[in-house]
Amino acid sequence: MPEPAGRRPDTVDAAARVLATGTYVSVALAAIGTFLMLLAGHVPVTQRGPGLDLARLPAELLGGRASAFLWVALLVAVLLPSARVIVAAVGYLREGDPRQSRVAVAVLCVLVASTVIALVTK
C-alpha cells in the first residue's frame, strides 16, 4: 500500500539517504578529480582522458591520479540509482511487501542486463 501520510516507513527515508549521500560523494570526488586534472596539466576536450580500467583503478586512486578520481566519481553517480533500487528491494521485503520487492529486483535485472549487453557487444 502507499506510504500513509502520518507514518514514515524506513524504505523511503533510506532510499532518500542513499541518494543524498551518494550525490555529495560523487560530486566531491569529481571536484577533486577536476582539481588534480588542472594540477597535472591535462587539457580537456583536446586531450582525451584515459578509459575505464577497473583493475588499475585502486592503485591509481591511491597514487592520486586525476582520471581515477573522476572515474570513481562517475561510477558512483551511475551506480547510485541502482543502490537506491537495492535499498527499496530490501526495504519492501522487510516491510512484508514481497510483490513490490520483486518489482525492484526486476528493475535491477534490467540494469544488470544493460551492463552485460554493453560488455558483450563492446
Binding site: A30, L52, S67, L70, W71, A118, K122
Partner: peptide, 17 residues
C-alpha cells in the same frame, strides 16, 4: 556508454560538478 568507452572523464568531471 561507459562500458563502450564513450565517456571522457576529463570533460565529464567539470561538467558534472
Amino acid at each position: 556508454y561507459v562500458l563502450r568507452g564513450q565517456v571522457d572523464p576529463y570533460v565529464a568531471g567539470p561538467v558534472v560538478v
